[in-house]
Design a binder for these strands. Structure first.
Lengths: 218, 218, 218, 218
DNA sequence: AATGAATGAGGGTTCATTCAT
DNA sequence: TATGAATGAACCCTCATTCAT
């Protein structure tokens, strides 16, 4: 059993494990994208990082584009999971939304690598409209999560605020100002809440429905 | 200052205007970067767009990196100018900061192309610390502008809010929700004003779903 | 003899019919070669067309070259069969060689795909002398068939004529001019027949020397 | 003047001569195609044979297909020239068409390499209809040349005969039977001449020109 | 006996960069 | 000063072939 394994010569021919191989390649792709950006990601770089031969990358993915897609998809999935967690935590602690959101944001930044890839994907949507639905979903989901503790316009405002806070923390490579974010969120929940034309006219006025945030309705 | 284009009496052929040529190349570079992203920007693409021979690009810039740097520098300059305008307008109309800022943000998005390059540059800083000073300057400058009508923590919060609103408008390619931004800014100026502690910070986030292939295909 | 396809009661899955599998692969190879040319024929293409797993192609044939060889051999076999038919028909209707040959030529072109592969093989012999014997056999066989109704030089002339007519019909993808071919063949049978230096020197015959007829008959 | 030339290191950077370079590359391409066939022709092979760096081949020709096109076009041009010569010689010696044609055929075969490429191109037309016009032109031109000494149907018959004789000489790599061809041509000129009806459609003819790219595209 | 996983050589093509002119 | 020719390095991808299962 298991004779020729790690024997002499070169290339022992890695163990049979398609699933693992595939996952390792995608993982490496995410890592490379995070480090060099989508535009500088190559088969060779990915293969090297994954510790697999070059041919493996094209064996599992017809084209580099497909591989990058898989990597971004993975990141997007994780993102969805993250947001689901946010919503859950907001539901669990409805009394302290500020800290909960700030905590979540800080936790999000802990995996800086993934966050960078995510923002790459985010920005890529500005050029490639095929990515729009993805981005809309993200923004919408986050808004929905926040909306569990506020009205819809406020949720959109908070979503933007958090988005801005996150990207600034990323590009400056400095820790998130947890306190400020927490405080600001709470202020918005309070502020926009009481005494205000609740963003009435906005996009479409009162609340609208279907997606929201800042741009809405063209 | 002073465009020199088609001047010089009746030049035998080539425009004979080093400064103009150089500027045209940088201009083209910005445009190409906006359209394809830094990673997909090439000498040939830039030369073609600028309408100059391939050799010109390397004649005026030692390497592609230098050219891209020049393009980003130009964008950064424009950005600084923009922010200076914000500050000025805030000083001129201190009574209505919300609308002023929302107007400025909307105006900023009018040149979508430039805005995309700017955010490219922004995000690039997450990977390349040589870009940090640039990014810090931007955030700092904006904060300073806003600080003319608020305390510093509030200014930082508003800066993050605006940043988030801008990037969301960009990636979704939908108009900014002017009303909501305006209202939110005012709420923050009021809200955080009475009774809050400072802190530091920055940030961002994200989410997802399906899409296809986001590699530019050439 | 005897196609075994889908037999064997109800095989668990795979057809379990080595001979049939092998034949199917060769068949597919012929088809692929016809469509793309020998140079563009690949294992994958063949496997896909035959509806067998990739591994089968290398399992049944040590190398792609062997597979292609098998395909060409098959074609050559069919060709031999075809020519045997010609001879038989000429023997059966010795009075009307022109129509018989023209009919045979027209019939040959009916399977355009196979004919193309055959001419591929034919032309390949110009570069690869290992194919010469095959080609010689074809030309020789056809000449022998025609020679049942004429002298040898005339048979060679007719063989060339038919060859030319066939290739021209193939490359132009237009139907053979049956009438013209028939008439011409008969004219040659008549013409070279009577009053002529019957291609004396030609072949090897009289004197000759270096070089010889069209292909000589080794 | 001319300092750094043939100096130390490697790659002295060949002399400036675009026309020559281009021609050399096409020449090499023809040679490679002749030796390996269109399907086995590669940039690297061509570059090596032309004695130019790999990059040169793609510098002068956007794609391999374009290069192959250029090579085949060159061959086609030469072919047209050849056929023009045939016609001229037939006009010059209308009394002895048989020997004239046989001589021309023999002369044609003297450049075996070119002839092989030509027949490659010929056969390629069976698969790629974009090549049809070219092939029609060849056949048509040859028929027209022969038609200067005969009626049209006879010319077509002779064209097919010559075609067959040529390809057989090529694939068997044995000299053309000059005497037999000469005699047969004369017999046809006599034979079909008196008492025969033309016919229709057969082979073909036509003329035409231009085409695009004959590489199978995958 | 049969097959999908795996690999590396090589092919087409792009492109930053160099340099003669 | 300016530019098109020229050159490899590197990239993406295909594929024959090998091999564990």
């Amino acid at each position: 059993m298991g004779r020729t394994e790690e024997q002499a010569g070169a290339a022992p021919r890695r163990t049979r494990d398609p699933e693992g191989r595939r996952a390792a390649i995608v993982e490496a792709a995410v890592s490379v994208i995070a480090e060099r950006g989508i535009g500088n990601t190559t088969h060779r770089l990915i293969a090297a990082r994954a510790g697999v031969p070059l041919g493996s990358t094209t064996y599992y993915f017809p084209s580099l584009g497909d591989l990058v897609d898989a990597a971004l998809e993975k990141v997007a999935d994780e993102c969805r999971t993250t947001l689901a967690g946010w919503e859950e935590r907001l539901r669990a602690s409805p009394a302290t939304p500020g800290p909960v959101i700030a905590d979540a944001a800080a936790a999000y930044l802990e995996d800086r690598e993934r966050a960078i890839v995510e923002y790459d994907l985010y920005l890529a949507a500005a050029r490639d409209e095929r990515l729009r639905p993805l981005v809309d979903a993200w923004i919408g989901e986050m808004t929905r999560a926040v909306a569990t503790v506020s009205d819809e316009p406020t949720a959109r405002a908070i979503t933007a605020l958090v988005d801005g806070a996150l990207i600034q923390a990323l590009v400056t490579d400095r820790p998130l100002d947890h306190r400020l974010l927490s405080t600001t969120v709470d202020a918005l929940l309070r502020g926009l809440h009481d005494g205000n034309d609740p963003a009435a006219g906005t996009g479409n006025d009162a609340h609208t429905r279907k997606r929201e945030q800042w741009r809405s309705v063209d």
